[in-house]
């Protein structure tokens, strides 16, 4: 995309409204500085994240995808993150089989009070993606 600065890579985050989205808010309120690559999509629960969203993003231009939900047992909807954990783990193991480094996809648990953990996660994941470089060569853009 034209707006992406030369230094930035495309990272998409799916964040549970009840915990990690709030954790990102907490980080904001505390002014915890973070890299700017991440774009956040708010979802009601990590259990709402169909692994296909991750695939869709990775196939269509994302260099990394982050999914963050409530800690196991703390799901606002009791069990949503338990389903998420199974589905996302399955996907994480499948990606390298397709030739996509599984480091490009991370799923984790961050609560609304964990602003610092959020900052750390964004910083570390962004670093990891930069280390891997762009996923797409732009070869297909002409199609």
């Amino acid at each position: 995309m034209s707006e992406v600065g030369p230094k930035e890579l495309r990272i998409v985050g799916f964040l549970c409204n009840w915990c990690s989205y709030g954790g990102a808010d907490t980080a904001g309120v505390s002014r915890f500085k973070q890299p700017t690559d991440l774009r956040i999509i708010r979802v009601p629960c990590s259990g709402r994240v169909d692994p296909l969203f991750v695939v869709k993003a990775l196939l269509n231009g994302a260099d990394g995808v982050l999914v963050s939900g409530c800690h196991p047992r703390d799901c606002h909807y009791s069990d949503g993150n338990f389903y998420a954990r199974r589905r996302l783990e399955m996907l994480k193991r499948l990606l390298p089989f397709l030739g996509i480094d599984d480091k490009r996809f991370h799923y984790t648990w961050i609560s609304a009070s964990e602003g610092q953990r959020w900052q750390q996660t964004v910083t570390d994941f962004t670093k990891q993606i930069h280390k891997l470089g762009p996923l797409h060569s732009g070869k297909e853009a002409q199609q």
Partner: peptide
């Protein structure tokens, strides 16, 4: 089928670290 159920403690899924 495993995708339609879960265990509270997943014996074989470890948390991923960055």
């Amino acid at each position: 089928p495993p995708m339609f159920t879960f265990s509270v403690e997943e014996k074989n899924i470890e948390e991923h670290k960055l």
